[in-house]
Simulated scan of single mutants.
Amino acid sequence: MIEELGITRTDIGLMGTVFSWTYAICQLPAGYIIDKIGAKRMYFFAVGVWSIATALMSVGHNMGQFLSFRFLLGVGESPNSPNSSKITTEWFPREERGQASGIWDSGSKWGSAVAPPLLTVLSLALGWRAMFLIIGVLGLCLAVGFWAFYRSPEESKRLSDEEYRHILAGRDDVTKPKQHLPWARFFTYRQTWGMMLGFFTSIWIWNIFITFLPLFLQDTLGVSVASTGWVAAVPYFVAAISGIYSGRITLKLARDRGMTSIRSKKSVLITACIGLGVLLVVVPFAHNLVVAVVILCLALGLVAAIQSQSWALTSDIVPDTHVAQFGGIMNFGGYFGGALAPVVTGLIYDRTGSYTPTFIVAGGIAALGALFYAVLVRKPIVAETGNQAL
């Protein structure tokens, strides 16, 4: 695209930013709608829309068109993570949700691992336009498959009575009066801001990698275009495994160490933020390809741990009935601020020819995440029945 259309690194970053801002703003209504209409309907709609947006990229010829398609992509992708969090609360007891969230969140990392080599092959063999069209069609097939096969626990015919009772035992007590948590009220509590700011730190870094990792490998470490996909895939494979394993750690901390569900997840989050900050500062000073890839693997592994356990933590902060809504608010905060990362990175590189300032700033932002989670996220938000005060 850069060679054919003459677009710049700043243009690439702008496309990432437009997607992220749209994605962020649409989180707010998406979470509310999910809690109202259910996960199955919303997931079918979301995957369908983002697949159409991806396919449309194949017919774009200028930045105006590409930015419009990226806007539509942001609308379609926005319900995905809150929806997955909602499904987790339906299918898993509270103490198991950290592990479950690690597994589903790893999907974005597996996808990012498989995509670079696969899309590189498709682009070189068929052209970048055909690549976007093929991926869009595959997404539509996924939407239809999900609608045909997904069932809630209440509808599933494959669950035993014992399994169903285990799921119900781990949900909120349905015999208690339902708590009413007004949507706008969430923004008045420090737990909400702690989750938003903490998630922002990981999304800032994630957006840098998802937009610029292939270009960083080519521009800084001399990796060829043909080899970029395979090299870029390695850190995402590690991230996928890390996301799953981080959930296993929270489960063991809760069961073996007697930690509360909140404390077990916060322990992982705070440790991961500090470690990530150190690794990012080191990245630009690793000039050997193998060493750089190892550091990138560790860094993206910690990003995955932060993201998966942030999603798991949402169900510890609010009642199950409000998880998608609260998760949408957290994701809004993360992506609204994190949306600036791609365009800032592109501007810095176009003006300096270096990614070093980007990684040093990102390291400081990552370390701040530990502070946000430690200080602002300490206990659940609880509504008082009767007057619904918080």
Rank of each mutant, 00 (worst) to 15 (best):
S123T: 15
E4N: 08
I317E: 00
A46L: 02
G337F: 12
V223I: 10
A113I: 09
F199Q: 12
L390E: 03
W230S: 14
D172G: 08
F92Y: 15
S202W: 04
A239L: 13
G229T: 05
G136A: 09
P235D: 02
A55E: 02
N83V: 06
I203W: 06
S246C: 09
T89V: 13
S261A: 10
R378I: 01
L280D: 05
G64V: 07
S112A: 15
I167H: 13
W206T: 13
V282F: 10
A304L: 09
F146W: 12
F71Q: 02
R70N: 06
V382D: 04
L276R: 02
A130F: 08
G60T: 15
L300N: 14
Q307N: 15
M57S: 12
G386L: 05
K379P: 01
M195W: 07
L14F: 13
T314C: 10
C273P: 03
S310N: 10
V281Y: 07
D105S: 14
T211N: 13
I134A: 07
F200M: 14
R378H: 00
K178H: 09
A55S: 12
W311S: 13
V59R: 03
L140K: 01
A113C: 09
G170L: 00
V344I: 15
S310K: 00
M57A: 04
W204I: 08
M63F: 01
L140D: 01
I241K: 00
F200T: 11
L300C: 06
A30C: 12
I381K: 03
V343K: 05
F332S: 00
Y335F: 15
L142V: 15
G136Q: 09
D11M: 09
V318A: 03
H180Y: 15
G48L: 10
V75I: 15
A39Y: 04
G139W: 05
L280A: 02
A232T: 09
F359C: 06
S101V: 05
V225Q: 11
L197K: 13
A55P: 04
V144H: 00
G139S: 08
V282I: 15
L302W: 11
F45A: 11
V303C: 15
S156Y: 07
F187L: 14
R263W: 04
L72P: 03
R70F: 14
V377E: 10
D172E: 14
R248K: 13
H61Y: 12
F69E: 05
C273D: 13
R257S: 13
P380N: 11
Y43T: 14
D161S: 14
V282C: 08
L118Y: 01
V75L: 13
V290C: 06
F132S: 01
Y150C: 05
T260R: 06
W206F: 15
F92V: 03
F216M: 14
A100D: 12
M1P: 04
T22S: 04
R129P: 06
V290R: 11
P29K: 05
L368S: 14
I306C: 10
S123C: 11
A367E: 01
N331V: 05
M63T: 03
R171V: 02
S354C: 02
A374S: 14
A55Y: 04
A125Q: 11
L302Y: 07
Q99S: 12
I329M: 13
T358Q: 01
T192N: 02
A46G: 15
T385L: 02
I37C: 08
L133I: 07
D316R: 10
F186E: 03
T54S: 10
E96F: 03
A324H: 08
L221Q: 07
F132D: 00
I12T: 05
A233M: 11
Q309E: 12
V268F: 04
I249P: 04
